[in-house]
């Protein structure tokens, strides 16, 4: 009876200790998986059309995700890992081009185009109104105005 009790106690202790030791490791793995997703969503799959690294099933993308995992395990930060890929593939590898240099045109060009197009439209409509007013001849009013009863 005593033997059984001790064996049970040892078993429970092992389970608890094992669980306690495994928990932080599992937590770290989950954190790394979350970070891999976060980083690979910021990067473009170099061999795919408009697909990020996270969604891509290309073997190259898989290898790049493996590199991210290794670098995270080695304690490198998100920015360091992104810089690692930018140093090799250039800013092309970024899902969102940086807001600097010629890329500014990509970010703000369409907005400026819309503003100027709106201004041009407003200018065009105003010019049409002005022309309509200029065409109105006070001495020869249109028939509708001539025939309208005086008040």
């Amino acid at each position: 009876m005593m033997y059984r009790f001790v064996a049970y106690l040892v078993f429970i202790t092992m389970l608890t200790v094992g669980g306690v030791n495994a928990a932080p490791q599992l937590k770290t793995e989950q954190a790394i998986d979350r970070n891999i997703r976060q980083i690979s969503e910021r990067l473009r799959c170099p061999v795919c059309q408009s697909e990020n690294l996270y969604d891509s099933k290309a073997p190259l993308a898989n290898e790049m995700r493996q590199i991210i995992r290794e670098q995270l395990s080695n304690g490198r930060t998100e920015e360091e890992i992104v810089s690692f890929f930018v140093a090799r593939y250039g800013t092309f590898v970024l899902q969102a081009p940086p807001k600097e240099g010629p890329q500014l045109l990509l970010w703000y060009g369409p907005l400026f185009l819309m503003i100027f197009a709106s201004l041009a439209l407003a200018w065009h409509l105003r010019r049409d109104d002005d022309e309509a007013v200029d065409e109105f001849d006070d001495d020869n009013p249109p028939e509708q105005i001539k025939e309208s009863p005086s008040t």
């Binding site: 045109l105 060009g109 400026f112 100027f116 197009a117």
Partner: peptide, 26 residues
Amino acid sequence: CIVFPALLIGVFAYGLTRDASHLPSA
């Protein structure tokens, strides 16, 4: 209103004429 959109469209149109396989190397 005339010059800026024309310039912008010109830049984008030039981009379309470039060889898509010519990727910049870092």
